[in-house]
Amino acid sequence: MARKYLPTADKGASGLERPAGRTFPGFMPARLWYRQPVYYMSNALTIGPSGATIAAHDVQLAEMRGGFGPHGATHFASSMSSVLVAASEVPDGSALSTRVGVNGVMVARGSTSGMRHSAGEALAHAS
Rank of each mutant, 00 (worst) to 15 (best):
R18W: 10
E63Y: 02
F24W: 08
Y5C: 10
T8V: 11
G69I: 02
G12H: 11
Y34T: 01
N43E: 14
V90W: 02
G15W: 15
A52H: 01
R22S: 13
G21A: 01
F76M: 06
T74P: 00
R35V: 05
G21R: 03
A95N: 11
G101I: 13
A73W: 00
T98I: 11
V90E: 10
G48K: 09
G93K: 04
S78P: 00
W33R: 13
L16F: 04
R65I: 05
A77R: 06
Y39S: 15
E17M: 04
M28D: 04
A30L: 11
H57S: 15
Y34D: 10
R99D: 05
P19W: 05
K11V: 13
R31N: 04
S79R: 14
G48F: 06
R31W: 00
A87C: 06
A87M: 13
A20W: 06
L96R: 07
L16I: 04
A56T: 14
D58Q: 09
S81L: 02
A9L: 08
A77Y: 08
H57G: 13
P7T: 06
G12F: 00
P19H: 05
Q60G: 09
A77S: 15
K11A: 09
P7Y: 00
Q60I: 14
A30C: 02
R22E: 15
I54L: 08
L84W: 14
L96A: 00
L32P: 07
G15L: 15
K11L: 11
G26C: 04
G72K: 07
R99S: 13
E63G: 01
Y5Q: 13
W33I: 11
S97Y: 03
G66F: 03
M80R: 15
L16G: 06
S94I: 01
G21V: 08
V85M: 10
R65P: 04
L45R: 09
S79K: 10
S94N: 15
M64F: 05
R31K: 14
P7V: 03
S14I: 09
S78D: 11
L61C: 01
D92H: 06
A87T: 07
E63H: 05
R65Y: 10
L96S: 09
I54D: 08
P25I: 00
G69N: 07
S79Y: 06
A55K: 06
F27S: 02
W33K: 07
G69L: 02
L96W: 08
L96P: 02
A30S: 10
A62E: 10
R65F: 13
G51R: 08
M80W: 12
M64P: 00
I54K: 05
G66S: 01
R18D: 14
A9P: 05
M80N: 09
S42R: 15
V59H: 04
S97F: 01
G48E: 04
T53A: 14
G48I: 07
Q60A: 14
F27V: 01
H75M: 00
P70I: 14
K4Y: 12
G101M: 15
Q36K: 05
A20R: 01
S94E: 14
S78T: 05
R22Y: 12
G66Y: 02
F24G: 07
P37R: 12
G12A: 12
F24P: 11
G69C: 02
H71P: 08
Q60S: 12
V100T: 13
L96F: 03
M28Y: 02
M41Q: 13
M28T: 12
A30P: 04
A13F: 04
L84M: 13
T53E: 13
L96I: 05
A73E: 05
